[in-house]
Design a protein around this nucleic acid. Structure first.
Lengths: 189, 189
DNA sequence: TGTCGGATGTTGACACTGCCAACTTCTGCC
DNA sequence: GGCAGAAGTTGGCAGTGTCAACATCCGACA
């Protein structure tokens, strides 16, 4: 007889990795980074407390996966802002506010980027979106060897926007104040 | 007979609160924020695992105490830089590098400043040292009611310096690159 | 000067966590 | 059709934060 009818959950999940990332992201946004435990994530995904280890070697690795996806969304927001540097700054700020817990995870002290190359790569990709506009020249092709060279204008713009974003995310500054100061500054030399 | 001779540790520590803060700070700088556990701190201070609860109601409260002292040291560095805004920026950066784990604790996601008024106060005091110079006018007296009004020039300077400091502390930027970009920018409008 | 309340520190316990090891169940490939 | 290995489970261990109950000591007050 058919054993995989709907009355019984299948032994294999299907795409547990995806579910774990989603569950972790949900807990992260709802209760903050401290509440994201492997066991809680496993519970949310409906699997045993050790199942996550088949997809992530450690809790930090799971968090790194969540953070990497966050960088992907940040990059998408930056690219959606087009070629307007001021709009990119606003987008950066908006991301920090809308995804505060994830932003803090991405740029916080919890994760050592050096331990997770994929995470570092995702972060660099997001930065290059900023660099493309700030340095005023398109990044030619995909020459990986030179991908580390970020223009000084980008650094300045990044620092300003990142500083405001962090101060807002940290609750030391209101979004209005940051947004206003950012607009007044223009972020262009 | 004398019972409090040196061959036996006294039941009361003397200044356990101070010792706990020092022990926590030491562990923080040596092994990072994740290694700072109440039990490890208690061990380092030579007391039982529950003694810290007589001085701090929770682990976060202990960390908040450590962070507040960090803001005190940051403020001292900023004030030592005199009235030169560029020097203050350098001092801010230098603090982030020299006390990286503490900096990440102070501005990271671990602590909710709203839960610890003393911490928020210490942070504001450090900022006022920056404001005194950046806004170009001395903060008159100690009118606490107006202490929240920080000039826009201060916000901009703070954001730039803070952004660079965070990117360096996070390992996304070298100190040389940040320092160079900061000097080139001048941090003054 | 003696004593007693409260501050300080200790022991014991509980639920929770990350992670390891051994086992079971299923799937894709030859 | 069967089998190697991927995917998921159960059980266990050491470590953690926090609560409760108990022990010890200091200082104030009679």
């Amino acid at each position: 007889m058919a054993v995989s009818t709907s009355d019984k959950a299948p032994y294999h999940h299907g795409d547990l990795r995806r579910s774990l990332l989603d569950a972790a992201s949900g807990i992260l946004h709802r209760d903050g980074i401290g509440a994201v435990s492997l066991r809680e994530v496993a519970r949310a995904a409906g699997v045993s407390h050790n199942a996550p280890y088949r997809h992530f070697p450690s809790r930090d690795a799971l968090l790194a996966g969540v953070a990497a996806e966050g960088f992907g969304r940040l990059r998408a927001r930056l690219e959606a802002a087009g070629d307007d540097l001021a709009a990119m700054g606003e987008a950066y700020l908006a991301f920090a506010v809308a995804e505060r817990p994830c932003f803090l995870l991405m740029f916080g002290s919890s994760l050592c980027k050096a331990d997770f190359p994929d995470l570092a790569g995702a972060a660099l990709e997001a930065l290059r979106a900023l660099d493309r506009v700030a340095s005023g020249r398109a990044v030619s092709g995909g020459d990986a060897s030179e991908s580390r060279t970020i223009g000084p204008a980008t650094l300045r713009a990044w620092a300003i926007v990142h500083g405001f974003a962090h101060l807002v995310a940290d609750g030391q500054l209101s979004l209005e104040a940051a947004s206003g100061a950012l607009a007044a500054d223009g972020t262009v030399p």
